[in-house]
Design a protein around this nucleic acid. Structure first.
Lengths: 325, 325
DNA sequence: TCAGGACACTGACACGAGTAAGTGGTACGT
DNA sequence: ACGTACCACTTACTCGTGTCAGTGTCCTGA
């Protein structure tokens, strides 16, 4: 009653040829001459039967699957990252690669070695991997490993730096000379926060401004008031926030402290959440071009799969000016 | 130079037994008696060699992989959904199942039949599938298919209804008798919006209130002003919003219209975004217990894998009272 | 007329694991 | 002493695919 899966043998029987010929036609193997008539016969038979090759058998035979494994840390996943992953999935799907995202469980050994079971074509890791695991991965025959935020940079790092630069440049152009940096409290966001802060630092240095005053800002109106008061008392009038949420925390802290006047504090975020245009004051922010970033990641992964040179990341970020700065 | 993958044959050679014995031990096959000494010898050898079974070979042999395929629509993925997927991934990983999320490309036939290639153990679909594809899936031997928002309900539907009920009940308890519903503009969110609205409707009926006035509210301060004015003029004082973003749009529209006084309009959202406590006024909202929902989804998937009965969803939602309502 | 290719295709093996069926040895009951 | 039963394992086949090494046929050139 349960009909069996359609295999290439079924297609071969239907078309009256051998299984090998079917394989050659469907994979368009180079250096194999197949008559146009039989080719069409095979393609027609495959279509009629609704044949789809078994990923498992193919992976077993070739030793490499068409899966790209993306190892995510246990961050809170921002909408920006979610959208990047979405784009990445479709871009890779166009190349017949399927993206598998897997959040690293805190201390689970079995899932941390999931790549052993999947044998993916490539691995995308957010954070730097230990040298041991890197060696083990290479030994398993997986040549393509892309680290997004590693020691030697990565395809997303320069975009983060660029975002930080744009924040500082925008505040400087508005006349602010003492700039504060609102750092996230969650320690897991460090890998993302550091390159953004580095961008702010670089811009300050180039513009002849003093280095930014860095303070952690909790996502709580009352607790956020403390760092805001310190900034206000020391005449820091422009605040670059790690992201839009932290930026809104700064505004909330200012509100709690009673310094609601806009002239008192200019705040600029990163990410352009849907919510950013809806708050009062509406949030000035730096929008990252998620499509372009996903493109860059796709290119890097494909490059890693083919040769070795990593294409450089696009500086695709722009300031969206609203009321808060 | 590239060391080969460690296979069960290597483990067998190392332990001085046959490959079958290794398989029996590592899978702890029932009705197979293996001496404790050889069992330990095999386990030790496997650990020493760092053996991990090949998912591809296992999938090929058993005809079913340990992958659970989650077909997402091309929605904007909310943080709530992202967190649910995160939990789901770890929960399934504890059962040695790996979750693969795949966003459905708009009109790409090849990726829409991705399940043919993956041969997953189970499929989680957000929206209802056509009968044809459902039949094809069943014919391919995939018995477990869970539809989250389908005709016959699903493990997440009652939680959405519950959220809507809580919204309406909270507003009613605060004395509002004419309730408006702020519907999302994005048509793709319908599947989510309908059950929430149904909950609001049910609560209104039970409380003896008139049915809610439903209006789409765009995520733009200026455009959102129109529906808000209509509500205000018709004495609708309490607004249930589809989610926190729409709720903030309502507040922004009110702000644009000049009716900023809190007594004029009570708004309650769904989702408890991190941002909800940071806005002014802080947003009253219904928080969904993502962990419990993920638990319910896991239970449903495991039930579908084993027998057929679907466990009912927990009504895990609660109102978080802040300033906006 | 026949060697020698090019052409178009086929046969057979391997990938790594699960598992039904079989095998040799020991213990036990009568 | 012999059949039976059980234990602890092994042998051998299978899943569906890619691909190397052939194999038969027709065409061409000398």
């Amino acid at each position: 009653m349960a009909e069996k899966r359609v295999t290439s043998a079924d297609v071969a029987r239907e078309a009256g040829v051998s299984r090998a010929t079917v394989s050659y036609v469907l994979n368009s193997t180079p250096n194999q001459k197949i008559a146009a008539s039989t080719r069409n016969r095979i393609l027609a038979a495959a279509a009629r039967l609704g044949y789809a090759p078994s990923a498992a058998a193919r992976a077993l035979r070739t030793g490499r699957s068409d899966v790209v494994l993306c190892l995510l840390p246990d961050w809170p996943i921002s909408p920006t990252i979610a959208r990047i992953l979405e784009h990445l999935t479709t871009h890779l799907a166009e190349r017949d690669l399927t993206l598998v995202t897997h959040v690293r469980a805190p201390a689970c050994r079995s899932t941390s070695e999931i790549w052993k079971a999947i044998t993916p074509a490539a691995i995308i890791a957010y954070e730097q991997l230990d040298d041991d695991t890197l060696a083990a991965i290479r030994a398993a025959g997986i040549t393509a490993t892309v680290v997004l935020f590693g020691r030697s940079g990565g395809p997303l790092v320069t975009a983060q730096e660029r975002a930080g630069r744009l924040q500082a440049e925008h505040l400087a152009a508005a006349g602010h000379r003492q700039i504060g940096y609102a750092y996230p409290e969650d320690p897991r966001l460090r890998v993302l926060a550091e390159p953004r802060l580095a961008g702010v630092r670089a811009a300050c240095a180039e513009l002849g401004l003093p280095q930014p005053d860095v303070r952690a800002v909790p996502l709580d109106p009352a607790a956020a008031a403390d760092p805001v008061r310190v900034w206000h008392n020391a005449d820091y009038s422009g605040i670059c926030a790690f992201n839009d949420e932290v930026a809104l925390a700064v505004l909330a802290g200012a509100h709690t402290s009673g310094l609601a006047a806009l002239g008192d504090l200019a705040v600029i975020g990163v990410g352009d959440l849907a919510v950013a245009r809806l708050t009062s004051p509406a949030l000035t922010t730096v929008a990252l071009d998620t499509a372009a970033l996903a493109d860059a990641m796709t290119a890097t992964v494909l490059a890693a799969l083919a040769g070795q040179p990593a294409t450089r990341s696009p500086d695709s970020a722009r300031v969206i000016v609203r009321a808060s700065a």
